[in-house]
Design a protein around this nucleic acid. Sequence first.
DNA 1: TAAAGAATATGTATTAATACGTAATTAAAA
DNA 2: TTTTAATTACGTATTAATACATATTCTTTA
Lengths: 221, 221
Amino acid sequence: MKMIQVVLVDDHSIVRDGVRATLKDQKNIKIIGEASNGKDAVKLVSELEPDVVIMDIAMPEMNGIEATDLLTKKKIQSKVIILSMHDNETYVLKSVEAGAMGYLLKDVDKEEFVKAINVVASGEKYFNTTISTLLVNGYLNKVKQGELKTSEDESEGEFDLTKRERGILKMIVDGRNNREIADGLGISVRTIETHRANIMKKLKVKNAVELVKVAIEEKIV
Amino acid sequence: MKMIQVVLVDDHSIVRDGVRATLKDQKNIKIIGEASNGKDAVKLVSELEPDVVIMDIAMPEMNGIEATDLLTKKKIQSKVIILSMHDNETYVLKSVEAGAMGYLLKDVDKEEFVKAINVVASGEKYFNTTISTLLVNGYLNKVKQGELKTSEDESEGEFDLTKRERGILKMIVDGRNNREIADGLGISVRTIETHRANIMKKLKVKNAVELVKVAIEEKIV
DNA sequence: TAAAGAATATGTATTAATACGTAATTAAAA
DNA sequence: TTTTAATTACGTATTAATACATATTCTTTA
């Protein structure tokens, strides 16, 4: 069984002590170096090229996500597992964007920690079930807000426009002038102007530019 | 230890047999009913109100996501775990939106299956690490596409507009007429008209409506 | 320093758009 | 069937916008 070389990056020595204690009796995992900020981590990892880097996020000089990003950009082959107390979706997603292969919370149990290191060292991503719940809940929050927004947009989008008005507004937004719209509908240009004036009054705008912007923003058309 | 009552929903009896065999020696889990399509599932679950529903997605009459959605809407307290062969992000997200509390793939091992049922029965969501990776990869794909789109937008947004032209375009998009723009800049209305004509020529539009739309769509302003 | 690009401005002409107001006809709702 | 809402249209008046063209001055670049 191949020895997995690990570099440990955290600004709190207590955490580093804890991780060291956790891994000390793993036959195939060896901590070969430590750093306490992102900047030193990049330097150290570039030199040592460990298999796995255990990286905290919140650190002085350069945070763990930035350090991960830099390592990714320098094409260092070491695989980063973020070990963080930050349990929110944004940190997870930013980390994976930066190139992290795993994300664990600091309350992870020893067994899963070891498993994560082994999985990631083998080239697979590892995110435990807590992370799934984070991502799913984050998504549901977005949908909820999206739904609220959608309903608001729809109710605000009404604006008391008649069916005809709505149709004419659509053609205006298409970039057609009054002449073109009238010809298309087989009615008088004067009628189009009237509708146009009525629409602008209802939407409380003073010219075509504002009209188009409101129509698009409020999803009227 | 409370007995967890489970209803099993899958159109393939082989799968139902498999699940039954898997759970048969669990002291605290009991299958109290089975259905082979979404419609029957909703009816059965509404009557029996099990703690947990193991639900497939692809089924005749009504699929598992729709059935889950219906159960959620009827405020049935049973918690749904989706057991599916579909390993893509969309199904996961649609399931959780519909109210599912867990999502497992059909290759899940017995131990984890039992764990998921227990976790979900206790009111927590359960998604294993494979689902996490799915969600993360799905996000990365979106970012990748988003990045490509962004660069295209930015390069197309140039359009050879001078600094002055860009500033005037911004004010046009703000909804200000030529008079207002001229007064604000302390120059002639005739100059604004000239700039305006030049901008429209460069952007290949024929009126203000198209101008605004292009400016917004191409993120010029 | 010369050349090129950007900014400013004007002339001539046309019409499209906006504002304010009134009214008849048709369609939908009560 | 009556009432209400929507659609269609016009009169009067003003000006804002668009099109096409030319030219000077100022700023930046080579």
